[in-house]
Computed example of a mutant assay.
Amino acid sequence: MKKEIIIKFATEQDLERIVEMLTDDVLGSKRECYKKPLPESYVNAFQAITSDPNNELVVACYDNKVIGVQQITFTPYITHQGGWRATIEGVRTSSSERGKGIGCALIRWAIQRAKERGCHLIQLTTDKKREDALRFYERLGFKASHEGLKMHL
């Protein structure tokens, strides 16, 4: 029997598990810091995200166990006649649960949420080193239509 994936807005009680998933990753293990208690920076970021009506942090769960996470940011733009767009960030699935449709469920949820919020576009980035992730997003209908640039400060 297939388990049902429940997607819900994250609570502060989910934060430790979220950070644990972020560190359970080749790239994340180099930039994240999972320890108990969590560094205050994660709590501050969580509070900033959840207090902003244009940011949503959601988790995917099986039987109340957090197994996936993503953040969605809704941004108004002057371009596209003042249209809104959604940006998906920080998508992670528990390493023990990969390949079971959790990432797909999260992204489909985000697409539906962007439609509900009246967005004309949904976008995301993935590190060029994440070739599997790029193929995954392309299978879901995303196109590598732009070249993205970043500058670490």
Rank of each mutant, 00 (worst) to 15 (best):
Y77I: 14
H80G: 05
G99L: 03
A60V: 08
T125W: 06
Y62K: 06
R117G: 01
Y137E: 01
T23H: 09
V26A: 12
K35A: 14
F74W: 02
F74G: 01
V58S: 08
K115H: 03
Y62N: 02
A114C: 05
G90W: 04
I72V: 13
S94N: 10
Q71W: 05
G141I: 04
P39M: 06
H120I: 04
Q81T: 08
R108V: 00
F74N: 01
V59M: 01
K150Q: 14
T75Q: 14
R113L: 14
R135L: 13
Y137W: 05
H146D: 13
S145N: 13
R139M: 06
S96H: 05
Q47Y: 08
T79I: 14
S145M: 11
Q81E: 12
T126P: 04
W84Q: 08
S94I: 04
S51Y: 10
D24F: 00
G103F: 09
E4Y: 03
E116H: 03
P37D: 07
I49E: 08
I88V: 14
K35P: 04
I6A: 14
V66T: 07
E32W: 15
D24A: 12
S145W: 08
Y137S: 01
T93C: 07
L38S: 07
I5C: 05
H80Q: 05
S41W: 07
G82D: 13
K8E: 12
K65Y: 02
A105K: 11
N54P: 00
A10Q: 00
A10R: 04
G82Q: 11
A60S: 09
C119E: 00
V59H: 02
V58I: 09
I18D: 06
K150H: 12
R92D: 01
F46H: 04
K65F: 01
K2H: 11
E147G: 15
V43D: 02
I78K: 05
A105W: 08
R31F: 15
I49K: 09
I18L: 05
A10L: 05
H80T: 05
Q81G: 13
T23R: 12
G101P: 00
T87S: 12
Y34L: 10
G118Q: 09
C119K: 01
K143H: 11
R98T: 07
R113N: 15
Y77C: 12
P37S: 07
K2Y: 06
S41M: 10
T93G: 00
V26G: 02
L22A: 10
N64W: 00
Q71I: 01
G118P: 06
G82P: 15
G83R: 11
H152A: 14
L57S: 04
T11Q: 03
E89W: 05
A133P: 06
K143P: 00
